[in-house]
Design a protein around this nucleic acid. Structure first.
Lengths: 158, 158
DNA sequence: TATTGTTATACTCTATAACTATA
DNA sequence: TATAGTTATAGAGTATAACAATA
């Protein structure tokens, strides 16, 4: 395997490869969403609420790794587009229980198709077995790094 | 392999896994650089110039995927820290030939140690064979996506 | 006291436009 | 005409601080 597009200095460099992979995959997914005016982030939020209706905004922050002040804007965007609703939370009157609207449900399933297509295009150089292996290895790496990250936070606030 | 930290909705999601891997690896590498006040980007620039002395700023832009106005600041930072010099370019008087200083050479080789350590820590969950396989698969994916990206640019400017 | 959501605000990052000096 | 580097500037994205309501 000899790449002519990746500089020789960075061919064996995991950081460079992961960062580039992220950038290029994001670019391709942006294409799939370009008509909607929304971003991957909005799609991810709808994906989560679709499966777990009633989540709070802070629940989403934890998963997506953004501040709650940032999440306000994301939820504003989605509510403004009519794709979700902030409803009163049954157990906590401070919080909002987020719910997909019918339009949100439709937009999500409609958008899932081009998103999956672009992901498949990105993965085209790998065989089905390799794709499964890549996914499994990335899961292991991310899981392990999340554990380390959580440990460090606990160490700072004992 | 069952992860408790990755939400079920995103476990099979390549985009999520790649983005998280990038974020977590970046965070760990930032720790390795925290004392210097510099970023991975600065380290990457020095890595390139070290191997290919005399590169222009625009050469770096292409590899790192940033605009030339952004690169000015990065080179300013490195020059301000005394790690590289802008020298006159022998073949083009508009351009700068970038050269590492002695301090730049030393900082790079000194910083390489913690950077590699943190990368190894990140890769710890994988066996040596798996690491090689991951690197090879990511190289294939990035290479293929770079070709598509270049094709699309050519199609827009025929 | 701590937490949820919100606003206002400041900071960072980035690219576009316009300039100069070259090619 | 086009390109290398620079500056000024505007836009996006993000987090910190402070607040009200509630736990």
């Amino acid at each position: 395997m000899t790449s002519e597009l990746i500089p020789a200095e960075f061919r064996g460099n995991l950081g460079f490869l992961v960062a580039k992979a992220k950038q290029l995959l994001s670019d391709e997914l942006d294409v799939a969403l370009r008509d909607s005016g929304l971003q991957i982030r909005h799609f991810a939020v709808l994906s989560l609420i679709r499966r777990r209706a009633g989540l709070r905004q802070t629940d989403l922050c934890e998963v997506l790794g953004v501040d709650r002040t940032t999440m306000v804007k994301v939820v504003d965007d989605l509510e403004g587009a009519g794709l979700l609703r902030r409803e009163p939370h049954a157990a906590d009157r401070r919080a909002h229980a987020l719910q997909l609207t019918e339009a949100g449900e439709q937009w999500h399933s409609r958008t899932l198709v081009p998103v999956m297509d672009h992901e498949q295009q990105f993965l085209a150089p790998l065989s089905p077995g390799e794709r499964a292996l890549l996914q499994e290895m990335l899961t292991r790496l991310v899981d392990s790094a999340l554990v380390r990250s959580a440990d460090q936070k606990l160490a700072r606030h004992p």
